[in-house]
């Protein structure tokens, strides 16, 4: 038994125990309030990631230097990806790392490029604005927190990840199927028949059930991305042309 678990110890931990250990560095180990034996791993890492995410988000607000802001933002987004891993949404977490953090990378590059000149590196915010924003933020936060705590069902403690028998539930396959329009959790009877038939393509049964797949939104998003790509390329196109009228005026 020993050898087989030598490098695979963390299956009970939720997926990111090691990542968490690296990123969090075990910072939250020092909570003296609770008996140490009762500490659970999931919560520990949740705390670590949550603290990083929140603190870095606040740091984004407080920083003036664009590049530092982008750096804090990346840390915040990265920690959020960790939270997604902890919540069992591995695919979303990896996606967040790849697209969100990658997108921010481009932000950072732009920050560097646009602020190569000293005056734009830090555009200061007026103190009055800060105070005002602080008040608004506090009230907004209060409202949101009140809302979060108001629903009883949300306050129920979750499960320990270990409760699922040590197997991390694979989320990406059902997600991918949902995106092509098939719900694996769809109990509609049509599917059973198809299954019996043995050669169904699976997509027909989705509409029959109450829950729909996401094929249409998926397609819309892909078209949307294409449009955005074209639009962004157009907005940042390399050159602008004079109209022919202006040309003739210039010639005169």
């Amino acid at each position: 038994m020993m050898p087989s678990t030598l490098l695979g110890p963390a299956s009970l931990l939720g997926p990111t125990s090691l990542l968490g250990f690296v990123a969090g560095g075990g910072t939250a180990c020092g909570f003296a309030m609770v008996p140490l034996a009762a500490v659970n791993w999931h919560g520990l890492f949740f705390l670590a990631f949550a603290v990083v995410a929140c603190v870095m988000a606040v740091a984004v607000v407080l920083a003036d230097n664009v590049v530092r802001m982008a750096f804090y933002l990346v840390l915040s987004l990265g920690a959020t990806a960790g939270l997604f891993f902890l919540a069992g949404a591995e695919f979303v977490g990896a996606m967040q790392l790849m697209i969100y953090v990658g997108g921010t990378l481009v932000l950072l590059v732009f920050g560097v490029m646009l602020t190569a000149q000293a005056p734009f590196v830090s555009i200061k915010t007026a103190t009055g604005d800060r105070v005002l924003a602080g008040i608004v933020a506090a009230s907004l936060l209060a409202v949101l927190l009140q809302a979060a705590f108001s629903v009883h069902a949300w306050r129920e403690p979750g499960r320990f990840p270990g409760d699922t028998g040590g197997v991390v539930e694979p989320m990406s396959t059902p997600l991918g199927m949902a995106l092509v329009g098939v719900r694996v959790d769809d109990p509609s009877p049509g599917l059973a028949q198809e299954n019996g038939g043995g050669n169904g393509d699976g997509s027909g049964g989705a509409a029959a059930g109450g829950r729909s797949g996401y094929l249409l939104p998926f397609e819309i998003v892909s078209v949307h991305l294409l449009v955005v790509l074209v639009g962004a390329a157009y907005l940042a196109r390399a050159k602008r042309r004079r109209s022919s009228r202006e040309l003739s005026e210039a010639a005169r």
Partner: peptide
């Protein structure tokens, strides 16, 4: 969260702060 399993509300708080 150190002792009890993490619940939805913990995430909601993080989401609210962000």
């Amino acid at each position: 969260p150190l002792v009890d399993p993490v619940g939805v509300v913990h995430y909601l708080v993080v989401g609210a702060v962000l």
